[in-house]
Simulated scan of single mutants.
Amino acid sequence: MILTFDNLVTPDEVRVLKTLIARAEFVDGRETAGAQLSQVKQNTQIPLDHPVMPEIMRLVMNALRRSQVFMDATHPRALAAMLVSRYQPGMQYGLHVDTPLMGDPTLIRSDLSFTLFLSEPDRYEGGELAFDTGSNEAIYKLSVGSLICYPTGQLHRVRPLQSGERVAVVGWFQSLIRDPGVRELLHDISRARSLVHAAEGNSRAFELLNKSFANLVRRYAET
C-alpha cells in the first residue's frame, strides 16, 4: 500500500527545514539498499552526525505524529533511520529494495519507508520516485511539504535527474503491525470509521467500527 499525505509539513516548517539544510555540507550518499546497484553517482547527503540533523529529525517526527491519518495508517513503533538526500543532474538511484535491518547500535526492522519532498516539482526535471508494480511503474513527484509512505520491501527507484535539484528527507521505521495486509485492513477501517463519524457522530455503527479497529490492533500489535 502506497500512501500520499499532502502538506503534511506546514509552510513555516518547510522554511525552517530549508534553512537548516542550507547550513549543511553534503557528502556522497550512503547505501540504503542491500548492495551497490550502479556505478552512476546516486546522490549526496547531509552527514548523520552534522549538528542540523537532530533538529531536522525532531521537526519531521513532530509532523508525522501530528497527523492522525498517518498514525492510523502506519502505526509507527520506532524510527530506524532518517537522512536528507540531494539529487543533481545526472544522479539517480537504481531499482532496489531498502535494507531490512537498520540502526546503530541497535538494529531495527524497517517495515515502512517515507520520502518528504522539499523541492517544488516544477523546479526540477526527472527525479521521480518510481515503484515497480509488476507490469509498469507508478510514478510520484509531490509538492513541497508532501510525503509518500510505502512498504520498505517494495521495488522502487529514483529516476535520473535531468535538470534542477531534488532535495528530500527520507526515513525508515518499524511498525507495531508487521503484516502489511493487516495494516491495510486497519487503514480501511480507520477511513470508514471517520466517514461514519462525520455522517452520524458517535452512532452504534461508529462504535462497532471503533471496537473492530481497537481489537485488531490489540491482536496484531508487536510491542
Rank of each mutant, 00 (worst) to 15 (best):
L147T: 10
A198S: 15
I177P: 08
E25T: 12
E55A: 07
R166Y: 06
K141N: 14
L107M: 06
V40G: 01
A221Q: 15
S146L: 01
T133D: 07
R58D: 14
A198K: 14
Q92D: 07
D6L: 09
I46D: 02
L83M: 11
R77M: 12
P180Q: 13
S113D: 05
E125N: 08
N62P: 00
V52A: 13
P54Y: 04
L95P: 00
R109P: 03
D188P: 00
D111S: 12
F114K: 03
A192Y: 12
L64H: 06
N62E: 13
Y87D: 03
A192M: 14
M53N: 07
S190H: 09
R193D: 11
V14K: 02
V158L: 05
F206E: 14
A221M: 11
Y93G: 02
S110R: 14
D6F: 00
D111I: 06
A81R: 09
G29N: 10
L112Y: 04
A24R: 01
L116G: 02
D104R: 08
M71H: 11
V169P: 01
D12K: 15
N202R: 11
V144A: 10
V69T: 15
R219H: 14
G171V: 09
T32I: 15
Q154H: 08
R193I: 07
L3P: 00
E55F: 02
V167T: 15
Q68W: 10
V182A: 02
V196F: 05
A33F: 01
R58Y: 10
A73R: 13
R65K: 12
M1Y: 03
S38I: 04
I2T: 04
T152F: 04
A24E: 01
R166V: 09
R204C: 02
F173H: 06
L142P: 03
P54W: 04
P100V: 13
V167P: 03
G29V: 07
N210T: 13
Q45H: 08
H50C: 03
Q36M: 11
R15T: 13
A198N: 14
D179H: 08
S190T: 10
F26R: 06
M1E: 08
